[in-house]
Design a protein around this nucleic acid. Structure first.
Length: 767
DNA sequence: GCTGCAGTTATTTTT
DNA sequence: TAACTGCAGC
């Protein structure tokens, strides 16, 4: 058994034991940086070399990126050991796995068909908004938000509207049980009518089909000999239920996870499952613990260990640096304000790279929430530091891309949301009034397809002739495309049909017009002033590449992906998946950083109400802070060689008062260990403040003006008075007419007419 | 019906 | 600062 020796020689003893264990039910508890995914990868290779057929192994990962990397690594290990198999194990995310399953089985539900599409967040919000408007509750934010989050929670437990119970309404809730039932069932009905699924539906419908259909169940239960799951600590109730359903009598299960890195409880993750449920469900469970850390220096691990020890609800374990290197001390700075933190981080990065100590790609900046990336971006740009952001505005969320995808989606499955986008891109002279008419008509006639109504009932809707022409052009191109799609014999033909469809519908002309307009306005995207068109071309290029790839079908034979596959693949993209490599600094949230590592890591904004987030700080549940602490632990353990922590001061205009360093700094033993360096603000007085708004809240507060919510309607103004405006800064009153004043603000704002009585500005009282 | 402007308001995390 | 809303003007 040469391959066994080979595997054992590449792993440490615990890893080797885990990778080559013959236990039927195996749990690997693996701390950060202990070679979790590596062990799992070797285990997959081991199982194959041991003789398990490729199509009888399925491995679930957290992101598509990890799935892709794992596939490559497994192949490499097989090559090194001179093994070759027909076919390959299915390595994918839970959602990807469910898509494969549903594409084959969903028709038997009789509710959806296999052309289903996935509803994105934007459309989902639109749907909820429609429902709330219908109930006359649109403006009750509390109502809307809490009902949506309740439904989200119920869906992670895998329950549909008919399975609701009055207990699902939280105590002291602003909505009633009847409200909940109404909203949830309308939401599901709408999705059903449109043949759309949301992320949770992928999981729930898979479970339902398995539970309620004996034929399907008995087929799939026998399909796998081995199921492996990565990042198991973030598994939720419905995912675990799903897993158990796919396990037959003979199926073996391997899970890998770290309860200390559970950071998705808000999405239903339960680390109870890895801690307790497994043992209960599988009394023969073998557990292997990996605690030798191959990633970080001991100094970094000491701080991380120290922090996570403050959590009560955990199994005690300490990470040890495998190479025994102490390394450099963890650095901590408390900066004057948000902007100086960003500036100093940028400066440090600049110096690291200038000094030849690091490449940009060796460096990551991690923060709690997406909105914190803004300040950083601006400062990095000033230092001309190349960076990429994970999250935030993703490629597939750009407007033109979503419009282009709507054209494609519409061809596969003509849902209303895609059609609504097309009515606006380019505009066809159909507005709110006509749409409302159409909705009424559909309700009356029990019709459920907007596209069809606009095709067949133009007279009824009294659509004006110019709009009819625009619609006709669209429908003609659409029909031509559908015919070509049907007749296409290969993906090349399909691709060129798609390209001409986008041209013939006038979409590409519209995109070029957008570019021209943006160029004229001087606000063009991209260096050449045709950013929108470039984006669409990039999408088409991606599609073309996707079409020429292959995947392994259920029978283990290679298959060509179709347009449906592409659309789902796009919908299931995660933040990490869209990251390309390059010599750039990486910016990301703590959540996105899970599973990644960098030689140099900055964790910024370690402030109370930021990290931990204000929601956790004010939460009555002690678990809330524990999860934030785990998240901070995840962030810190991304660092290999050097870890920089920072917080900032200044006034917090959202919560009131001033920003204070995070409790996590003390808990990690960072604050007492070294004195926080107070940044010398004076030294930076000469440098321009980065904000385009020089009167940002901190400045307002310094003048004692923040939080002074008192109305200014009784204030009397006269020419020559000074006014402070939240956006425009300090200006001089030029004229007073009734309740309006003309104020001259510094460039670029210039003269503004303001109405007395708004909170956005106040009279500045001279001291 | 569409566009642009001004004011308001709010910031968790994502497959 | 961004995302949204309501409104005025075309």
């Amino acid at each position: 058994m040469d391959f066994l020796m080979d595997i054992l020689s590449k792993l440490n003893s615990s890893q080797g034991k885990a990778a080559t264990s013959d236990s039927k039910h195996l749990r690997i508890i693996a701390g950060a940086g202990t070679g979790k995914t590596r062990t799992l990868t070797y285990r997959v290779a081991y199982l194959l070399m041991k003789g398990i057929a490729p199509n009888r192994i399925v491995c679930i990962t957290f992101t598509n990126k990890v799935a892709r990397e794992m596939r490559e690594r497994v192949q490499q290990i097989l090559d090194e050991n001179h093994f070759a198999f027909e076919g390959f194990p299915l390595i994918s995310t839970f959602h990807g796995f469910c898509y494969r399953f549903l594409k084959k089985e969903i028709d038997s539900l009789g509710i959806y068909n296999r052309n289903f599409n996935i509803i994105d967040d934007e459309d989902r919000n639109r749907l909820y908004k429609e429902i709330f408007t219908g109930m006359g509750k649109k403006d009750n934010k509390d109502f809307c938000r809490s009902i949506v989050s309740t439904i989200d929670h119920i869906k992670t437990e895998g329950r549909y509207p008919e399975e609701l119970s009055p207990k699902d309404v939280p105590l002291g809730s602003v909505f009633t049980f009847a409200d909940l039932e109404k909203v949830y069932s309308q939401y599901q009905d709408q999705l059903r009518n449109q043949n759309l699924l949301d992320f949770d539906d992928l999981l729930i419908l898979t479970v339902k089909l398995m539970e309620e259909n004996p034929e399907i169940r008995s087929y799939w239960k026998r399909k796998f000999d081995d199921i492996l799951v990565d990042e198991f600590q973030d598994t939720n109730a419905i995912q675990y239920r799903l897993l158990l359903l796919f396990m037959g009598e003979e199926t073996a299960l391997t899970v890998v996870g770290d309860p200390d890195q559970t950071i998705y409880t808000w999405r239903g993750a339960k680390n109870e499952i890895i801690k307790n449920s497994l043992q209960k469900d599988f009394p023969d469970l073998e557990t292997v613990v990996l605690d030798e850390n191959y990633r970080s220096t001991q100094n970094i691990l000491d701080r991380a260990n120290c922090l996570i020890k403050k959590n009560h609800d955990r199994i005690d374990k300490d990470l040890l640096a495998a190479n025994h290197v102490k390394g450099e001390k963890v650095e901590y700075h408390d900066y004057f304000d948000n902007a100086s933190e960003a500036r100093e981080v940028s400066k440090t990065i600049y110096q690291l790279v200038q000094g030849g100590k690091a490449k940009f790609s060796d460096i990551a900046v991690i923060y709690r929430s997406n909105y914190l990336s803004n300040v950083l971006e601006r400062q990095l740009a000033l230092y001309q530091i190349p960076y990429r952001i994970y999250g935030g505005m993703k490629f597939f969320e750009r407007k033109v891309i979503k419009d282009a995808l709507a054209y494609l989606r519409l061809a596969v499955n003509p849902d209303d949301y895609s059609f609504l986008r097309i009515l606006q891109a380019p505009t066809k002279g159909i507005g709110e009034v006509t749409l409302a008419k159409a909705k009424d008509w559909m309700a009356k006639e029990k019709r459920n397809n907007l596209l069809e109504v606009f095709r067949l009932d133009q007279d009824k809707l009294k659509i004006k002739s110019s709009s009819r022409l625009a619609l006709k052009d669209f429908f003609d191109a659409y029909d031509r495309f559908q015919k070509k799609r049907e007749n296409a014999t290969d993906n090349d033909e399909l691709f060129s049909a798609i390209a001409s469809y986008l041209e013939e519908t006038g979409f590409l002309a519209y995109v070029r017009r957008l570019d021209r307009e943006e160029t004229d306005r001087g606000s063009y995207v991209g260096s050449t002033g045709n950013g929108n068109e470039e984006n669409v071309q990039e999408l088409l290029h991606t599609l073309q590449q996707f079409f020429s790839s292959e995947y392994l079908g259920e029978d283990g034979k290679p298959q060509k992906p179709d347009l449906e596959d592409f659309l789902i693949e796009v919908a299931l993209q995660s933040d990490q998946d869209t990251m390309e490599d390059g010599n750039q600094v990486s910016l990301m949230t703590g959540h996105v950083s899970k599973g990644l590592e960098f030689p140099f890591v900055f964790v910024t904004g370690l402030n109370e109400n930021i990290f931990p987030t204000s929601h956790a700080v004010s939460s009555l549940a002690p678990e809330a802070i524990e999860e934030e602490r785990r998240l901070a632990y995840v962030c810190m353990t991304r660092a290999q060689r050097r870890l920089y922590l920072s917080s900032f001061g200044g006034n917090d205009f959202i919560h009131g008062g001033s920003y204070r360093p995070s409790r996590f700094l003390k808990e990690a033993g960072v604050v007492s260990e070294m004195k926080p360096t107070l940044p010398d603000y004076q030294a930076h007085q000469g440098t321009r403040r980065p904000s385009s708004n020089p009167f940002a809240p901190t400045f307002m507060s310094k003048m004692g003006l923040a939080h002074s919510n008192k109305s200014n309607e009784n204030e009397k103004y006269q020419v020559g008075d000074k006014v402070v405006h939240t956006t425009f800064g300090v200006g001089n009153v030029l004229a007073v007419e009734g309740n309006k004043i003309d104020v001259l603000f510094p460039e670029p704002f210039g003269k503004k007419k303001l109405a007395i009585g708004f909170k956005a500005f106040h009279k500045l009282k001279e001291e």
